[in-house]
């Protein structure tokens, strides 16, 4: 069985919550990151995350919930997002976002596309595929920047482990 409309809107609204938080996290990091080039990278990507949230938020309306409807993920996953937000050091911020969190988010988006009916839910699929193209570009931006200003990637196995420990992130229906 494919996903129902209710399953779809819950997943899309959860992704929207995450994209809004990523917008806010990169926004909070912008004035508190010293390196100018990294600051500019965050400034640019804030709007990418905002646009993703906006597209997803328009889709929630089509799936019979209010426009720009967000759904908080499972509590333990919110903790992982907040651990990302709490990173202070520039190298760690870059690694946490571009090496751990975005690749994990990409996998979750792909899992959604695999799980849904590509035909009936094509509007969601098109949005997610556009987001995936953006996320790929954003990772490339970050990698090129790190090579240019010689910021070394910092392994963050604990954050990666906590993220990947969640097979599902949509909060259980109350």
């Amino acid at each position: 069985m494919s996903l129902t409309v209710n399953d779809r809107v819950r997943a899309i609204a959860t992704f929207r919550f995450i994209e809004v938080r990523l917008m806010e996290i990169t926004a909070a990091w912008t004035p508190t990151t010293a390196e100018m080039e990294v600051k500019v990278l965050f400034g640019r990507h804030i709007f990418d995350f905002a646009q993703h949230a906006d597209w997803l938020g328009k889709r929630t309306f089509e799936l019979r919930k209010p426009e720009q409807y967000s759904l908080k993920p499972a509590e333990s996953y919110v903790d992982v997002i907040e651990a990302l937000a709490a990173e202070e050091e520039t190298g760690k911020r870059l690694s946490a976002l571009y090496d751990v969190f975005i690749p994990a988010l990409e996998s979750r988006y792909r899992a959604y596309v695999d799980a849904t009916d590509r035909l009936l839910d094509e509007p969601s699929v098109v949005i997610v595929e556009r987001i995936l193209i953006d996320l790929e570009r954003m990772k490339r931006d970050a990698q090129r920047l790190r090579e240019r200003i010689a910021v070394v990637a910092v392994p963050l196995p604990e954050l990666a482990r906590r993220e990947s420990a969640h097979s599902a992130i949509v909060a259980p229906q109350g």
Binding site: V40, L41, R44, I46, F47, Q51, D54, G57, Q68
Partner: peptide, 20 residues
Amino acid sequence: PWELRMSMARQCWDESRHIE
């Protein structure tokens, strides 16, 4: 309001391009 947040996020992008 979300529309206002979108405009502010867009401003971040514009300013980042101006910086460069």
